[in-house]
Protein backbone atom coordinates (compact mmCIF):
# COMPACT_ATOMS: atom_id res chain seq x y z
CA UNK A 1 0.00 0.00 0.00
CA UNK A 2 1.49 3.37 -0.92
CA UNK A 3 1.84 5.93 1.82
CA UNK A 4 -0.78 8.15 0.18
CA UNK A 5 -3.44 5.56 0.86
CA UNK A 6 -2.47 5.20 4.48
CA UNK A 7 -4.18 7.56 6.90
CA UNK A 8 -2.18 10.42 8.35
CA UNK A 9 -4.23 10.16 11.52
CA UNK A 10 -5.98 7.14 12.86
CA UNK A 11 -7.97 7.49 16.07
CA UNK A 12 -8.97 4.22 17.70
CA UNK A 13 -11.63 3.91 20.41
CA UNK A 14 -10.64 7.22 22.01
CA UNK A 15 -12.11 7.95 25.43
CA UNK A 16 -11.55 11.31 27.11
CA UNK A 17 -13.26 11.77 30.45
CA UNK A 18 -13.50 14.76 32.78
CA UNK A 19 -13.25 13.88 36.43
CA UNK A 20 -15.23 16.46 38.38
CA UNK A 21 -16.31 16.46 41.99
CA UNK A 22 -19.90 15.98 40.85
CA UNK A 23 -19.05 12.95 38.75
CA UNK A 24 -17.37 11.84 35.58
CA UNK A 25 -18.25 13.44 32.26
CA UNK A 26 -17.59 11.10 29.36
CA UNK A 27 -16.95 13.87 26.85
CA UNK A 28 -15.51 11.50 24.25
CA UNK A 29 -16.62 7.91 24.69
CA UNK A 30 -15.14 5.52 22.19
CA UNK A 31 -14.53 7.42 18.98
CA UNK A 32 -12.68 5.93 15.98
CA UNK A 33 -11.94 7.59 12.67
CA UNK A 34 -9.24 8.02 10.03
CA UNK A 35 -7.99 11.08 8.22
CA UNK A 36 -6.22 10.53 4.89
CA UNK A 37 -3.62 12.85 3.35
CA UNK A 38 -5.27 15.79 1.63
CA UNK A 39 -8.70 14.90 2.98
CA UNK A 40 -11.11 17.32 4.66
CA UNK A 41 -13.02 15.58 7.43
CA UNK A 42 -15.94 17.42 8.96
CA UNK A 43 -17.17 16.73 12.49
CA UNK A 44 -20.75 17.89 13.09
CA UNK A 45 -22.85 17.84 16.18
CA UNK A 46 -24.66 20.01 18.66
CA UNK A 47 -22.81 22.02 21.33
CA UNK A 48 -21.36 19.82 24.02
CA UNK A 49 -21.28 16.64 21.91
CA UNK A 50 -17.51 16.29 22.30
CA UNK A 51 -16.28 17.65 18.95
CA UNK A 52 -13.80 20.06 20.50
CA UNK A 53 -12.61 17.60 23.13
CA UNK A 54 -11.93 15.04 20.39
CA UNK A 55 -9.56 17.34 18.51
CA UNK A 56 -8.02 18.69 21.71
CA UNK A 57 -7.25 15.09 22.62
CA UNK A 58 -5.45 14.72 19.29
CA UNK A 59 -3.43 17.88 20.05
CA UNK A 60 -3.01 16.71 23.68
CA UNK A 61 -4.21 20.03 25.07
CA UNK A 62 -7.25 18.77 26.99
CA UNK A 63 -7.70 20.98 30.06
CA UNK A 64 -7.65 19.51 33.53
CA UNK A 65 -9.54 17.69 35.01
CA UNK A 66 -9.98 16.02 31.61
CA UNK A 67 -7.73 13.23 30.43
CA UNK A 68 -7.50 10.49 27.85
CA UNK A 69 -8.44 7.27 29.63
CA UNK A 70 -8.31 4.84 26.74
CA UNK A 71 -7.68 4.50 23.04
CA UNK A 72 -4.93 5.24 20.56
CA UNK A 73 -4.18 8.24 18.40
CA UNK A 74 -1.86 7.08 15.63
CA UNK A 75 -0.23 9.94 13.76
CA UNK A 76 2.19 9.66 10.85
CA UNK A 77 4.82 12.42 11.25
CA UNK A 78 6.94 13.74 8.40
CA UNK A 79 10.00 11.74 7.44
CA UNK A 80 12.27 14.47 8.78
CA UNK A 81 10.95 14.10 12.29
CA UNK A 82 13.04 10.98 12.77
CA UNK A 83 13.55 11.00 16.52
CA UNK A 84 9.82 10.61 17.03
CA UNK A 85 9.77 7.39 15.09
CA UNK A 86 12.34 5.50 17.13
CA UNK A 87 10.99 2.04 17.77
CA UNK A 88 8.09 2.53 15.39
CA UNK A 89 7.82 -0.09 12.63
CA UNK A 90 5.11 1.40 10.45
CA UNK A 91 5.91 5.13 10.70
CA UNK A 92 3.18 5.92 13.20
CA UNK A 93 3.41 7.49 16.66
CA UNK A 94 0.70 6.95 19.25
CA UNK A 95 0.08 10.51 20.47
CA UNK A 96 -1.98 9.21 23.38
CA UNK A 97 1.16 7.60 24.79
CA UNK A 98 3.31 10.73 24.60
CA UNK A 99 3.82 13.16 27.48
CA UNK A 100 1.39 15.98 26.71
CA UNK A 101 3.97 18.63 27.64
CA UNK A 102 7.01 16.67 26.54
CA UNK A 103 9.44 17.58 23.80
CA UNK A 104 8.10 15.01 21.29
CA UNK A 105 4.50 16.18 21.54
CA UNK A 106 5.55 19.85 21.37
CA UNK A 107 7.55 19.12 18.22
CA UNK A 108 4.28 17.91 16.63
CA UNK A 109 1.96 20.60 18.00
CA UNK A 110 2.11 23.71 15.87
CA UNK A 111 4.56 22.16 13.40
CA UNK A 112 2.74 19.08 12.07
CA UNK A 113 -0.71 19.48 13.59
CA UNK A 114 -1.93 23.07 13.85
CA UNK A 115 -5.06 24.60 15.32
CA UNK A 116 -7.33 27.37 14.10
CA UNK A 117 -9.49 28.34 17.06
CA UNK A 118 -13.04 29.60 17.13
CA UNK A 119 -12.42 33.12 18.41
CA UNK A 120 -9.43 34.75 16.72
CA UNK A 121 -10.00 37.86 18.86
CA UNK A 122 -9.44 35.94 22.08
CA UNK A 123 -6.81 33.58 20.72
CA UNK A 124 -4.29 36.34 19.98
CA UNK A 125 -2.69 37.97 22.98
CA UNK A 126 -3.87 41.59 23.09
CA UNK A 127 -0.51 42.93 24.27
CA UNK A 128 1.74 41.23 21.72
CA UNK A 129 1.85 42.12 18.04
CA UNK A 130 0.56 39.69 15.42
CA UNK A 131 4.08 39.52 13.98
CA UNK A 132 5.56 38.61 17.34
CA UNK A 133 3.13 35.75 17.75
CA UNK A 134 3.59 34.40 14.22
CA UNK A 135 7.38 34.66 14.39
CA UNK A 136 7.31 32.85 17.70
CA UNK A 137 5.73 29.78 16.08
CA UNK A 138 8.28 29.85 13.26
CA UNK A 139 11.23 30.24 15.65
CA UNK A 140 9.94 27.37 17.79
CA UNK A 141 9.91 24.82 15.00
CA UNK A 142 12.33 25.97 12.32
CA UNK A 143 16.04 26.54 12.48
CA UNK A 144 15.95 30.13 11.28
CA UNK A 145 17.08 33.45 12.74
CA UNK A 146 14.76 36.28 13.69
CA UNK A 147 15.20 38.15 10.41
CA UNK A 148 14.34 35.06 8.39
CA UNK A 149 11.36 34.35 10.65
CA UNK A 150 10.04 37.85 10.01
CA UNK A 151 10.40 37.36 6.26
CA UNK A 152 8.55 34.03 6.47
CA UNK A 153 5.85 35.59 8.64
CA UNK A 154 5.26 38.37 6.10
CA UNK A 155 5.12 35.76 3.36
CA UNK A 156 2.45 33.77 5.24
CA UNK A 157 0.37 36.91 5.83
CA UNK A 158 0.58 37.73 2.13
CA UNK A 159 -0.41 34.17 1.27
CA UNK A 160 -3.66 34.42 3.24
CA UNK A 161 -4.53 37.65 1.43
CA UNK A 162 -3.75 40.28 4.06
CA UNK A 163 -2.92 43.64 2.44
CA UNK A 164 0.25 45.45 3.60
CA UNK A 165 1.62 42.43 5.43
CA UNK A 166 4.79 44.30 6.49
CA UNK A 167 2.72 46.79 8.47
CA UNK A 168 0.31 44.17 9.79
CA UNK A 169 3.22 42.41 11.46
CA UNK A 170 3.40 45.37 13.86
CA UNK A 171 -0.38 45.51 14.42
CA UNK A 172 -2.26 44.18 17.41
CA UNK A 173 -5.13 41.73 16.91
CA UNK A 174 -7.74 44.25 18.07
CA UNK A 175 -6.67 46.68 15.36
CA UNK A 176 -7.80 44.27 12.62
CA UNK A 177 -11.32 43.50 11.37
CA UNK A 178 -12.85 40.12 12.19
CA UNK A 179 -12.08 38.66 8.78
CA UNK A 180 -8.47 39.86 8.72
CA UNK A 181 -7.98 38.59 12.24
CA UNK A 182 -9.11 35.09 11.25
CA UNK A 183 -6.84 35.27 8.20
CA UNK A 184 -3.92 36.22 10.46
CA UNK A 185 -4.82 33.25 12.66
CA UNK A 186 -4.76 30.97 9.60
CA UNK A 187 -1.38 32.45 8.63
CA UNK A 188 -0.06 31.64 12.09
CA UNK A 189 -1.45 28.08 11.99
CA UNK A 190 0.10 27.50 8.56
CA UNK A 191 3.42 29.15 9.42
CA UNK A 192 5.21 25.80 9.74
CA UNK A 193 3.34 23.99 6.93
CA UNK A 194 1.44 21.49 9.05
CA UNK A 195 0.28 18.27 7.43
CA UNK A 196 -2.90 18.26 9.50
CA UNK A 197 -4.91 21.36 10.26
CA UNK A 198 -7.58 21.36 12.92
CA UNK A 199 -10.18 24.05 12.42
CA UNK A 200 -12.45 24.37 15.45
CA UNK A 201 -15.52 26.30 14.26
CA UNK A 202 -13.29 28.87 12.54
CA UNK A 203 -16.20 30.69 10.92
CA UNK A 204 -18.65 30.83 13.82
CA UNK A 205 -17.57 34.22 15.12
CA UNK A 206 -17.57 36.04 11.77
CA UNK A 207 -20.34 37.26 9.47
CA UNK A 208 -21.64 35.23 6.55
CA UNK A 209 -19.87 37.06 3.70
CA UNK A 210 -16.52 36.91 5.46
CA UNK A 211 -17.31 33.29 6.34
CA UNK A 212 -17.48 32.39 2.64
CA UNK A 213 -14.15 34.12 1.96
CA UNK A 214 -12.45 32.32 4.82
CA UNK A 215 -13.82 28.95 3.65
CA UNK A 216 -12.59 29.60 0.10
CA UNK A 217 -9.20 30.58 1.44
CA UNK A 218 -8.95 27.44 3.56
CA UNK A 219 -9.95 25.25 0.63
CA UNK A 220 -7.41 26.78 -1.75
CA UNK A 221 -4.64 26.59 0.87
CA UNK A 222 -5.57 22.99 1.54
CA UNK A 223 -5.20 22.12 -2.14
CA UNK A 224 -1.96 24.09 -2.52
CA UNK A 225 -0.25 22.42 0.41
CA UNK A 226 -2.07 19.08 0.17
CA UNK A 227 -2.99 19.38 3.84
CA UNK A 228 -5.53 17.29 5.69
CA UNK A 229 -8.12 19.25 7.62
CA UNK A 230 -10.40 18.27 10.46
CA UNK A 231 -13.17 20.83 10.32
CA UNK A 232 -15.48 21.17 13.30
CA UNK A 233 -18.79 22.94 12.98
CA UNK A 234 -22.41 22.74 14.00
CA UNK A 235 -23.36 24.28 10.65
CA UNK A 236 -24.28 21.61 8.13
CA UNK A 237 -24.19 24.21 5.33
CA UNK A 238 -20.51 24.82 5.99
CA UNK A 239 -19.83 21.07 6.06
CA UNK A 240 -21.47 20.66 2.66
CA UNK A 241 -19.18 23.35 1.25
CA UNK A 242 -15.86 22.16 2.56
CA UNK A 243 -15.82 18.54 3.78
CA UNK A 244 -15.33 15.34 1.82
CA UNK A 245 -16.02 12.99 4.66
CA UNK A 246 -18.36 13.60 7.60
CA UNK A 247 -18.48 12.35 11.19
CA UNK A 248 -21.77 12.93 13.00
CA UNK A 249 -21.26 13.09 16.74
CA UNK A 250 -23.74 12.93 19.59
CA UNK A 251 -22.94 12.81 23.32
CA UNK A 252 -19.33 11.78 22.84
CA UNK A 253 -20.04 9.02 20.32
CA UNK A 254 -20.09 8.78 16.55
CA UNK A 255 -23.59 8.20 15.23
CA UNK A 256 -22.80 8.00 11.55
CA UNK A 257 -19.81 8.44 9.25
CA UNK A 258 -19.56 8.59 5.49
CA UNK A 259 -18.72 10.67 2.42
CA UNK A 260 -20.45 14.03 2.43
CA UNK A 261 -22.64 13.16 -0.59
CA UNK A 262 -24.03 10.04 1.05
CA UNK A 263 -24.60 11.71 4.39
CA UNK A 264 -26.60 14.49 2.78
CA UNK A 265 -28.46 12.42 0.18
CA UNK A 266 -29.32 9.28 2.08
CA UNK A 267 -28.68 9.75 5.78
CA UNK A 268 -29.24 6.52 7.69
CA UNK A 269 -29.10 7.34 11.39
CA UNK A 270 -32.30 8.88 12.81
CA UNK A 271 -30.15 11.61 14.39
CA UNK A 272 -28.52 12.56 11.07
CA UNK A 273 -31.95 12.62 9.44
CA UNK A 274 -33.35 14.83 12.17
CA UNK A 275 -30.37 17.20 11.86
CA UNK A 276 -30.81 17.51 8.11
CA UNK A 277 -34.55 18.10 8.43
CA UNK A 278 -33.92 21.07 10.68
CA UNK A 279 -31.98 22.98 7.99
CA UNK A 280 -34.13 25.74 6.51
CA UNK A 281 -34.63 25.30 2.77
CA UNK A 282 -35.73 27.70 0.05
CA UNK A 283 -38.22 25.08 -1.16
CA UNK A 284 -40.29 24.87 2.00
CA UNK A 285 -43.46 26.94 2.18
CA UNK A 286 -42.94 30.18 4.04
CA UNK A 287 -44.44 30.71 7.49
CA UNK A 288 -44.20 27.07 8.46
CA UNK A 289 -42.39 25.94 11.55
CA UNK A 290 -38.86 24.64 11.05
CA UNK A 291 -38.71 21.06 12.34
CA UNK A 292 -36.55 20.69 15.42
CA UNK A 293 -35.31 17.60 17.24
CA UNK A 294 -37.65 16.70 20.08
CA UNK A 295 -36.27 17.08 23.58
CA UNK A 296 -32.85 18.38 24.49
CA UNK A 297 -29.36 17.00 25.00
CA UNK A 298 -29.29 15.09 28.29
CA UNK A 299 -27.22 16.47 31.13
CA UNK A 300 -23.66 15.10 30.91
CA UNK A 301 -23.90 13.50 34.37
CA UNK A 302 -27.16 11.90 33.44
CA UNK A 303 -26.52 9.98 30.28
CA UNK A 304 -29.27 7.65 29.20
CA UNK A 305 -28.45 3.95 29.23
CA UNK A 306 -28.24 2.20 25.88
CA UNK A 307 -28.10 4.29 22.72
CA UNK A 308 -27.41 7.91 23.80
CA UNK A 309 -29.95 9.22 21.29
CA UNK A 310 -32.86 6.91 22.20
CA UNK A 311 -34.86 9.37 24.38
CA UNK A 312 -35.17 11.75 21.41
CA UNK A 313 -35.36 9.14 18.66
CA UNK A 314 -38.54 8.77 16.60
CA UNK A 315 -37.75 5.14 15.72
CA UNK A 316 -36.80 4.02 19.20
CA UNK A 317 -37.45 0.33 19.96
CA UNK A 318 -38.22 -0.34 23.60
CA UNK A 319 -36.23 -3.14 25.18
CA UNK A 320 -33.33 -2.78 22.76
CA UNK A 321 -32.30 0.84 22.31
CA UNK A 322 -32.60 1.63 26.02
CA UNK A 323 -30.70 -1.54 27.03
CA UNK A 324 -27.71 -1.84 24.74
CA UNK A 325 -25.31 0.62 23.15
CA UNK A 326 -24.95 0.09 19.40
CA UNK A 327 -21.45 -0.01 17.89
CA UNK A 328 -20.44 1.96 14.81
CA UNK A 329 -20.61 -0.62 11.99
CA UNK A 330 -20.25 -0.35 8.23
CA UNK A 331 -23.67 -0.93 6.68
CA UNK A 332 -22.83 -0.36 3.01
CA UNK A 333 -19.83 0.47 0.82
CA UNK A 334 -19.58 4.01 2.15
CA UNK A 335 -21.38 4.58 5.41
CA UNK A 336 -21.05 3.35 8.97
CA UNK A 337 -23.87 3.75 11.46
CA UNK A 338 -24.33 3.01 15.14
CA UNK A 339 -28.02 2.16 15.19
CA UNK A 340 -29.96 -1.05 15.80
CA UNK A 341 -32.16 -0.33 12.78
CA UNK A 342 -29.25 -1.49 10.62
CA UNK A 343 -27.33 -4.06 12.65
CA UNK A 344 -27.31 -5.90 15.95
CA UNK A 345 -23.76 -5.32 17.15
CA UNK A 346 -23.72 -3.80 20.60
CA UNK A 347 -21.03 -2.83 23.06
CA UNK A 348 -20.34 -5.73 25.40
CA UNK A 349 -20.59 -4.56 28.96
Amino acid sequence: MSSEQRPILSVRDLKTYFFLDEGTVKAVDGVSFDVYPGQVVGIVGESGCGKSVTVRSVLRIVEKPGRIVAGEIFFRPRKGNGRLLEGSQDGYVDLARLDAQGREMRAIRGAEIALIPQEPMAAFSPVHTIGDQIMETILLHQAVNEEEARRLGIERLREVGIPNPEQRMEAYSWELSGGLRQRAMIAMALSCHPTLLIADEPTTAIDVTTQAQVLNLLRSLQQQHNMSIIFITHDLGVIAQIAEYVLVMYLGRLMETGPVVDIFHHPLHPYTRALLKSIPSVYTRSRTFLPTIEGSIPHPFNRPPGCPFHPRCSQFTAGICDQKTPLLQPVNEQQSVSCFLYHRRAEED
Binding site: E63, Q101, G110, L115, S125, P126, V127
Partner: peptide, 27 residues
Protein backbone atom coordinates in the same frame (compact mmCIF):
# COMPACT_ATOMS: atom_id res chain seq x y z
CA UNK B 1 -5.00 30.95 32.43
CA UNK B 2 -8.35 29.90 30.95
CA UNK B 3 -8.22 32.40 28.11
CA UNK B 4 -8.09 31.05 24.55
CA UNK B 5 -4.74 32.73 23.83
CA UNK B 6 -3.14 30.44 26.43
CA UNK B 7 -4.57 27.37 24.72
CA UNK B 8 -3.39 28.78 21.39
CA UNK B 9 0.15 29.19 22.72
CA UNK B 10 0.00 25.60 23.91
CA UNK B 11 -1.26 24.46 20.50
CA UNK B 12 1.76 26.19 18.94
CA UNK B 13 4.03 23.84 20.84
CA UNK B 14 5.48 26.27 23.38
CA UNK B 15 6.78 24.79 26.59
CA UNK B 16 4.42 25.26 29.50
CA UNK B 17 6.41 27.57 31.77
CA UNK B 18 7.62 29.69 28.87
CA UNK B 19 4.11 30.32 27.60
CA UNK B 20 2.76 30.98 31.08
CA UNK B 21 5.43 33.62 31.69
CA UNK B 22 5.07 35.23 28.28
CA UNK B 23 1.28 35.48 27.99
CA UNK B 24 -0.96 35.11 31.07
CA UNK B 25 1.59 36.39 33.61
CA UNK B 26 2.20 39.48 31.50
CA UNK B 27 -1.54 40.20 31.37
Amino acid sequence: LNKPYVEMARAKGMSEWKLVLKYPVRL
